[in-house]
Amino acid sequence: MTIRVTMTVNGDELTADDVWEGESLLYVLRERLGLPGSKNACEQGECGSCTVLLGGEVVCACLVAAGQAEGADVVTVEGLGDGEQLATIQETFVESGAVQCGFCTPGLLVTAFDLLNRDPDPTDATIREALAGNLCRCTGYEKILDAVRLAATRQSSSA
């Protein structure tokens, strides 16, 4: 048996058919809905590279069963910018050198985007705590912290 799942992804209502009941939201996004931005690394909630917003909250898409997302509002890294213009946090990641191999980047962007929505002027401790579930093997995190601080500054001066 399989199920059909309909959800709103980055503002569009999308339907996936033939979904196996135990399949993760991550698999459905990547393999059935053509949204490979969210990465699959550990499938056990440890790395955060699959982070998406589900109902406005950061979650590991690898730990959400697709059927649990029925009717839900999902935002992936593909939905942070508007198609023309990158989101501020995406620009500052590029400018700060926060991207090396880039595998962790989509998850970190979604997490940092959510953080700055909740707390436009986070302390360093708050940033570290918010990003604790996103692992990066390459950068040593300093440039990622720089990128988040720069995005906070830029967004508050343009607000």
């Binding site: 135990g22 993760s24 499938e43 056990q44 590991c60 730990l63 959400v64 069963a65």
Partner: peptide, 17 residues
């Protein structure tokens, strides 16, 4: 299945069917 943070790990790794 609630938050799935235990159950989904088992499903993803084929430890439970």
């Amino acid at each position: 299945l609630c938050g799935g943070t235990d159950v989904m790990v088992d499903l993803n790794f084929d430890r439970r069917r």
